[in-house]
Design a protein around this nucleic acid. Structure first.
Length: 541
RNA sequence: GCCCCGUUGGUCUAUUGGUAAGGAUUGCAGGCUUUCAAUCUGCAGAUGAGGGUUCGAUUCCCUCACGGGGUACCA
């Protein structure tokens, strides 16, 4: 009755897989959105198909261009390239199915609405919101499910004229089936059933002629030949009305796949950009944010919740995460290959991805695990790449020149080698700012100075003596310095701890850092001498 | 209220009608160590509840609880 139990599927007739992501121009790229986009992208790439971006700006007041830029930027940074859409593919146009802004496609939607009315699948409805509300409340009071009486439905010109004479305005509503069942075969969830009787006569066009999302979405998906609609699960209950629209319009139905949403750290609530304050109470989330803050501060970045927020992709770019690490982490948030393997390059993701292995339940965003992926990916990078990633951070922080002096890269590389996996994101290079600070401007952390140089009785004397030793170490390398210090310790009959901490604080101003001998070597003899001298003269006020 | 989706250690997950329920991440304790990090060793930690079906259920079915989504002239 009414709607076909078996849906004619578009995919069977189309050679090429086409998926899409339809961001609203909100000014930021949400991490959950990235995952949805990633799965769309992976699916398209895996099947040698196409991935497109369509801007969902149907109800839209703000400046679209401006609000879209951070989103496109995020995609570019992550390497999720789109075959069609705004600013797609090099010199040519945006693609053959444009425009890719829904605000520029309204005639299409209006024509579709017209067609639905003409076909008897939709009708003009002259009910006022109050009248509708009254019906809803009545249904609720009697404990029944609300079904619109269609009292102000106008299907003939006479009815239209009559209602208009009353001064009423009409919206267009779907004339939904009131019996039967829709059996939907979701690629992730399997068979899902909906009773048509539960569906409402949804509005698809407003009185002012503008059309609503569901209509627009279905029309565009068809016009752009989308074969697989892969989207967040909150759209699952909306699917029946979209199927109804599509079928009524004579379209074939795309495949649907509904992904679980990404949840807050430590809970099953949906992750939202607006709840930063709440997430900051989560220890792990707070740690991630703090890590970012410390980098941003040294870069002189603004850290407003609108942009500098671990729920938003910009955050990761700004503090120096690797796109591949984020993608790898996000991939595992709801998808697994076999429960064992977790590391995937982007190419391997494409190779192995399948919708069948997408999980059904929401997955919490776990900052610690993201960090673990990032750390692993970053430490696996070769030195040249790491250096190239870190240099811009030093430039932005004003620690080195732009363009960098010729000895900068080797120095950064030496620091990275010595620091090992202490540098987890590119921005962590700023922990070693002391290597780029002029000797006479090196800040001495008072607490460290007090504990390691000022307070121990013999520290100053030992440091002075060791400085003399330092003058003669040749070559001035970590291994020679190591020998020299150990010889010194033996001669002075002291424990290594009595000198080494003072030495570190003296030359870096800090209590923590990587190996002291590497530190000395990278600094060079001259700087070491100058800094030690300065530390010896320093006193606490 | 009604409809839909979901529920394995803190978190991400694997597997199976018969498992010591596996991996990852995290946590804790200890070792190493010039600080920090890393590393090594050890430890801890899960099938939401109740009913069925079955010789046997984490797995299949039902009910409940909990979480989420939808029920908009939002997307």
């Amino acid at each position: 009755m009414g709607f076909l139990p078996t849906l004619p599927l578009l995919v069977e007739h189309t050679m090429r897989v086409r998926t899409r992501f339809a961001p609203s121009p909100t000014g930021y790229l949400h991490i959950g959105g990235v995952r949805t986009a990633l799965f769309n992208w992976l699916f398209a790439r895996k099947h040698d198909g196409q991935f497109l971006l369509r801007v969902d700006d149907t109800d839209q007041q703000r400046n679209v261009e401006e609000a879209l830029e951070p989103i496109l930027n995020g995609f570019r940074w992550l390497g999720l390239d789109w075959d069609e859409g705004p600013q797609a593919g090099g010199a040519g146009g945006d693609g053959d199915y444009g425009p890719y802004f829904q605000s520029q496609r309204s005639e299409l939607y209006e024509a579709a609405a017209e067609q639905l009315v003409a076909g008897g699948f939709a009708y003009r409805d002259f009910a006022t919101t109050e009248e509708l509300q009254a019906e809803r409340e009545a249904a609720q009071a009697s404990g029944e499910a609300f079904t619109y009486s269609r009292r102000w439905m106008a299907e003939s010109p006479e009815q239209v004229a009559k209602f208009e004479a009353e001064g009423r305005a009409a919206v267009v509503r779907l004339k939904m089936p009131r019996e039967g069942t829709l059996v939907l075969n979701d690629l992730i969830r399997g068979e899902v059933r909906f009773d048509w009787a539960r569906e409402q006569d949804h509005v698809i066009q407003r009185a002012d002629g503008s059309c609503l999302y569901h209509l627009a979405s279905v029309v565009d998906d068809r016009a752009m030949e989308i074969t697989h609609v892969i989207r967040a699960e909150e759209h699952l209950p909306n699917t029946p009305r979209q199927v109804f629209i599509a079928q009524s319009l004579g379209y074939e139905i795309p495949e649907y796949a509904h992904l679980p949403y990404v949840a807050e750290p430590g809970s099953k609530n949906k992750l939202s950009k607006r709840k930063l304050d709440k997430y900051l109470k989560n220890r792990d989330f707070a740690a991630l944010k703090k890590h970012g803050d410390s980098i941003a501060e040294r870069l002189g970045l603004e850290t407003s919740a609108d942009t500098f927020n671990p729920v938003i992709v910009d955050f990761y770019e700004q503090v120096g995460f690797l796109p591949s690490a984020i993608l790898n982490y996000l991939l595992l948030l709801g998808w697994s290959l076999d429960g064992e393997r977790e590391e995937f390059t982007v190419d391997e993701m494409v190779e192995h991805f399948s919708l069948e292995r997408v999980n059904h339940s929401p997955a919490s965003f776990d900052p610690q695990k993201l960090m673990a992926f990032q750390e692993r990916a970053f430490t696996q990078l070769d030195l040249k790449k790491k250096t190239a990633l870190c240099v811009p951070f030093l430039q932005t922080a004003g620690l080195i020149d732009t363009p960098p002096a010729c000895d900068t890269a080797p120095r950064v590389s030496a620091i990275l080698t010595a620091a090992g996996d202490r540098v987890k994101v590119a921005g962590d290079i700023l922990d070693y700012n002391d290597f780029f600070t002029p000797n006479e401007q090196l800040p001495l952390e008072e607490k460290a100075f007090q504990k390691r140089i000022n307070k121990p009785e013999d520290a100053r004397e030992l440091l002075r003596k060791f400085a003399d030793t330092l003058k003669t170490v040749e070559p001035f390398t970590a291994s020679e310095l190591d020998k020299a210090l150990h010889g010194f310790v033996e001669r002075e009959q002291i424990k290594i701890g009595q000198i080494i901490h003072a030495l570190r604080v003296g030359v870096t101003g800090k209590a923590v850092g990587f190996g002291v001998f590497e530190t000395l070597e990278i600094l060079g003899r001259e700087s070491c001498m100058a800094r030690i001298q300065r530390a010896l003269e320093h006193s606490i006020a």
